[in-house]
């Protein structure tokens, strides 16, 4: 009986995602009517088609892919650490990814993010992933010694601070052009991905999402803790390694192309648990994937609201994410993984 309700919720989320996708494609800085957008979608000539195919579609798809990846990464981390405050940006994964992107960019081999061609796209994505994975491993090692939520959070903050400071040093020694590119990238953007980059992003994220889905049993087992899970025949060592690799890859790829997007990974799993009260990842994972896409589509639309000037994406996600975190801290006793 309850299973039917979860099914309905998932269906509602999917429909909302579809609707928001269409809405997202039909709004933008260029004033196009809905009819023009539809026309642009199906023709291959004209300004409308150019705008829709070169700007709006890649951007909307990036929103969905990046949102799903970050939200899923957040859920995996919260489950792994059995800690409601875990998330890719909170524990420094995005900072680690940023550091590696900065190293690549400012080492001067790549003049700017926007001019990256396909092989470059892969190398930036993989470098960022490597940065994310490395920070994740450090956090896991430290998490063995600290057990409570606040300490782990503090460790994450410190790691973020440490990696950010290296980035600052890099910025200080880099040229003005690179610096500006990097600063813009730091603000977060889903609008600068071209189809080639989107291909790279999609392949990495889809792999990650599929592997996550295949790990439902392991993830559920993590909620019981290592002893119970091992007794139930679940290989926890392999499960932990898989979570580290999958999360690092997905978050790294997203960070490489969209910049360090804050709060999505932390907030979406909690927001979804309000709608779909379940702890079973078989139900939670698909819902969180849909929810992540939804939230980024909404944030992207809000970023374009004021009219001609497009606000930085991170400003909007933080505007939504910060109250969520404050609310979580206030209700800390009731919020859990």
């Amino acid at each position: 009986m309850t299973r039917g309700r979860y099914g309905l919720n998932l269906l509602a989320l999917t429909l909302m995602l579809g609707l928001l996708f269409l809405l997202n494609v039909s709004v933008g800085s260029a004033a196009l009517s809905f009819a023009e957008v539809v026309q642009g979608l199906f023709s291959h000539t004209g300004t409308a088609s150019e705008i829709v195919w070169q700007f709006r579609l890649p951007k909307a798809i990036t929103c969905i892919v990046a949102g799903s990846a970050l939200a899923t990464g957040g859920l995996l981390m919260q489950t792994l650490f059995r800690n409601p405050m875990a998330g890719p940006d909170v524990l420094g994964l995005t900072s680690g990814a940023s550091l590696f992107v900065a190293l690549l960019l400012m080492a001067g081999r790549y003049p700017s993010v926007t001019s990256i061609i396909v092989p470059g796209a892969w190398s930036v994505a993989l470098a960022a992933s490597l940065g994310g994975i490395m920070v994740f491993i450090v956090v896991i090692i430290i998490a063995r010694y600290v057990r409570d939520n606040t300490s782990l959070l503090l460790v994450g903050l410190m790691l973020s601070a440490a990696t950010s400071s290296i980035v600052s040093v890099l910025q200080f020694t880099s040229q003005a052009d690179d610096l500006q590119t990097f600063m813009i990238w730091m603000l977060g953007s889903v609008g600068s991905t071209n189809w080639a980059e989107l291909g790279v992003l999609c392949s990495i994220v889809c792999c990650g999402l599929l592997i996550s889905i295949s790990m439902v049993k392991v993830l559920n087992g993590m909620l019981l803790g290592e002893s119970y899970a091992t007794n139930l025949g679940i290989n926890m060592k392999r499960g932990r390694l898989a979570v580290v690799l999958v999360t690092g890859l997905m978050v790294g790829a997203v960070t490489a192309f969209c910049g360090p997007i804050a709060f999505v990974g932390l907030a979406v799993p909690h927001l979804i648990r309000l709608v779909v009260p379940a702890s079973n990842h078989k139900i939670l994972l698909p819902a969180v994937m849909l929810g992540g896409g939804l939230l980024l589509l909404v944030c992207d639309m809000l970023a374009q609201m004021p009219g001609s000037r497009v606000l930085p994406l991170n400003a909007i996600t933080s505007l939504i994410g910060a109250p969520v975190v404050i609310w979580m801290v206030i209700k800390a006793k009731r919020i859990s993984v």
């Binding site: 059995r82 049993k217 559920n220 087992g221 909620l223 019981l224 803790g225 119970y228 139930l232 025949g233 679940i234 648990r273 009260p277 379940a278 702890s279 079973n280 009731r334 859990s336 993984v337």
Partner: peptide, 18 residues
């Protein structure tokens, strides 16, 4: 055990995981 949204039946279901 983490997972306060886990129900009693969910917890018992874990017994079948093997």
């Amino acid at each position: 055990i983490t997972g306060t949204q886990m129900t009693v039946r969910d917890l018992v279901t874990y017994g079948r995981y093997p």
